[in-house]
């Protein structure tokens, strides 16, 4: 097995009396597509928040690329190569799709304190941004304001933004939620192509997509990881079947 890119050690978090993350330890090797599944309210989004730095952990450690990043904030983790999408779409509605992505390119290009020169006209930023848009199938919509895109297109845009930061690890919180059939097929296709470039940690309710994409799957129930294994192992794990998966979805 290759060295772990992401390692969670005994992560905990609670909101008041509610324990949302309960002693989660997990290791994701480089190059893996790892899916986290679990019923609504299991704490999946919270876990992604803790990994990305949006929400602090009660205790435990997050190691990324061999370094302890538990104390780092969202933007610092992003700079180290941790990109994420949000369950509730988060884009810049007043910017064109292209500018949304170009800003992510700008973020990794370093020099954002330039006070002169029209950023919207820089080929060095727009070129790579356009490539990302084309990759997710939004090339023809590059000039549309992000706020005016359809829900599914916004999900695709979020993926393009995350890709533009050239992440080592992509954290995706239900990238298929709310997408139409065609869009969802396309996103799955994109993710399939990405697996050679980056490691992916994915939350998704679409079981068909999860079982076809993931190298390994972890099952989160009430904040606890009850199982981690290959799709085949998960499919036949009785505890998982009992706790979460309906028989018809397992078929």
């Amino acid at each position: 097995m290759t060295k772990p890119l992401l390692e969670l050690r005994n992560l905990r978090k609670n909101y008041g009396a509610l324990i949302v993350t309960d002693d989660v330890s997990l290791s994701v090797p480089e190059g893996e597509v790892h899916a986290i599944i679990g019923p609504n309210g299991a704490g999946k989004t919270t876990l992604i928040h803790q990994i990305s730095g949006l929400a602090p952990s009660g205790s435990g450690q997050v190691l990324f690329d061999g370094q302890d990043i538990t104390g780092l904030r969202l933007h610092e983790r992003a700079r180290r190569g941790l990109a994420r999408s949000f369950q509730i779409t988060s884009v810049l509605p007043g910017f064109s799709a292209l500018e949304n992505v170009a800003l992510a390119v700008q973020a990794r290009s370093g020099s954002s304190y330039r006070l002169f020169g029209n950023a919207a006209r820089e080929p060095d930023l727009n070129g790579p941004a356009m490539e990302c848009l084309n990759l997710v199938g939004l090339g023809s919509r590059s000039h549309v304001l992000a706020g005016l895109l359809s829900h599914g297109e916004k999900r695709q845009l979020e993926l393009a933004i995350a890709l533009a930061t050239e992440p080592k690890l992509l954290l995706l919180d239900e990238p298929l939620a709310g997408t139409g059939h065609e869009e969802s097929r396309r996103v799955v296709e994109v993710l399939r192509r990405l697996r050679s470039r980056t490691t992916i940690l994915l939350i998704e309710h679409d079981m068909e997509a999860v079982f076809s994409l993931a190298d390994r799957i972890s099952v989160l129930v009430y904040g606890r990881l009850i199982a981690t294994g290959t799709p085949e192992q998960i499919r036949h794990n009785p505890e998982v079947r009992a706790a979460y998966l309906g028989e018809e979805e397992m078929a």
Partner: peptide
Amino acid sequence: GAKENPTRMEAIGFH
């Protein structure tokens, strides 16, 4: 960008 959506900006690495 930070005016429109600060969290989005942080998620791509801006403070």
